[in-house]
Design a protein around this nucleic acid. Structure first.
Lengths: 192, 192
DNA sequence: CGGGCCTTTGACTGGTTTCAACTTCTGTGG
DNA sequence: CCACAGAAGTTGAAACCAGTCAAAGGCCCG
């Protein structure tokens, strides 16, 4: 149970048996099917979601009715509407499953208690947040590249996501239309 | 000395006199003139920079020779090339002063020691990082808006920056050319 | 086998960039 | 204190890239 979760944790910090036991009392396992929502826009985002298995995405729907994918989350990744999660405001994102998935849910209160009770976990949280920050910074810098370069970066950074996700969702994640990405790919393969 | 720095700190956490004294031993004050570099692409980014007074920017120069502004930093803000700062890799950003500025520099080793010695500071760091993360997420979502909306968001989010920074730098920060922003502004004022 | 989703392709449109010229503003040195 | 050079902002015209709309073909799953 929660194997990936603890493996991931042990990569950065060492937990005693007691600490691990404390942890377990806060974790909420959950399985969801493909296309099932775990969060819908407007609801309060009560949980941070850790992906044990499967693949999720968060996205918003803009005025024109198009999805804009904010994030993907594979095995070992976290996903949530961070703002809603910590403020309690209604969520601006939807989160749903692109594959059948196994999740671990944790509430904000639980995380706060854990950070309090297990100082090493506070450190872990800091490091995680810092990595996420850097990833975002990188991604933002890619938004100035042209279509082709942007797609290339995506493929080299997250080859597994590109493989497992429909192409039009990759396009959405990159801020492109499905058509534009399709054409860019065609050109790339023609040149090669 | 370092007034803004400690004010900012005290907004989130309470420090004893000893703790504050410990802090001071790690801080490196520095004044720089307008247009002066504090970090250049290729050098290792040794310091996280806290702005006591003034205004800095970080930016990259792309293949075409255009600046791309990554971040601005006003009084009370942090700025650094986070990736270079924590890995020691050569920096990918330049950081320079847009106004005469007073800074506080801290090395990564110093921050690590401080987080170790003063647990409250670890918590502070976590919270700061989390806020920065949310800000980035928000900014990324604005990149899908059209020119006018993007500029409006900028004005409402950071009115002080818009006031103090040349317009073509705002354009760069928003991922636009100076000409496009100029035209958008003209249209906006014509309609009003 | 059929339906729905996904991808591709074409024609058209529109917004942004690019390049160049001109004006306005600003700061500096004579 | 004025003159001048450089930086910043504006405007126009042309080229280009991505978006939009529409349609067709492919593929997977029930």
């Amino acid at each position: 149970m929660h194997e990936v979760f603890f493996t991931k944790l042990r990569e950065s910090i060492t937990l005693t048996e007691e600490e691990e036991a404390i942890f377990r009392t806060y974790l909420l396992p959950k399985k969801i099917r493909k296309k099932q929502y775990i969060l819908q826009e407007g609801d309060a985002c009560k949980y941070a979601i850790f992906v044990e298995k499967g693949l999720l995405r968060s996205y918003t729907v803009n005025e024109k009715g198009n999805d804009q994918i904010v994030q993907f989350a594979l095995e070992g990744w976290w996903i949530t509407d961070m703002y809603s999660f910590i403020t309690g405001e209604p969520a601006r994102y939807n989160i749903d499953a692109l594959e059948e998935s196994e999740l671990v849910l944790i509430s904000n209160a639980a995380l706060e208690e854990l950070r309090q009770r297990i100082p090493k976990f506070l450190e872990f949280s800091f490091l995680q947040m810092r990595s996420a920050y850097i990833a975002f910074e990188k991604r933002l810098s890619y938004m100035n590249l042209n279509t082709e370069e942007r797609y290339k970066k995506m493929v080299e950074t997250y080859p597994d996501i590109v493989q497992r996700v429909p192409q039009h969702m990759i396009a959405s994640y990159l801020g492109l239309t499905a058509e534009t990405l399709s054409r860019a790919r065609k050109q790339m393969s023609a040149r090669k």
